[in-house]
Amino acid sequence: MSETTERPPGALQLLFNGIVSENPVFRLALSLCPAVAVTTTVANGFILGVAVLAVQVLSSLTVAIARGVIHPRVRIPVYTIIIAVWVSAIDMALAAFVPALYAQVGLYIKLIVAFAIIISRLEVFASRQPLVPSFWDAVGMGLGFMIALMVIGALREVLGAGSFFGIVLFKTKPLLFFALPAGGFFSIALLMAFFNALERKLTGGTAKPAAGGHHG
């Protein structure tokens, strides 16, 4: 997808792309910090995932609409401002109108400003594509991020806390290690290795392994 001269991919393909073949966490290795910090439980992963999905879609739409007027030399600062505006606006609106929900998710919203995944989708996709494909790309990436966080959260919650979605499975904490930050790194690495191996098996060994580390 170099420029708009190419026909943009369809909605289904963009969704598949974001969730599976270019999964932000397991394939692009983006936004690993929150993926480690927040994924001690499935519920945490889910809430952060929803928040990212919302900010991603809104920011991508804004950039897709405004891409004609953004000067290319200052596009990155402008993207940052757009993301920050959406995050702050959502933060304030939730705090005002749904304080009970805000008490649960307020922490997650503020984290999102610095997520690499959002700005990278703006730069790679929304700034070069029309509104509709940008929307589907944002939805796919947001869902992919959410699902990845929930998978990591599931592994860590079951092993580290002995529960799943808050439902107690074991009375004791089976492997406390996985609830700790170090366990988060290992969980992501193990899952990434697993998905690479799976893909290699399915595609007959031609797939490239996930690209390494991008902070944020």
Binding site: L175, L176, F177, L180
Partner: peptide, 8 residues
């Protein structure tokens, strides 16, 4: 180190 973290 793993055991220290897991079964303190």
């Amino acid at each position: 180190a793993f055991l220290m973290a897991t079964f303190p």
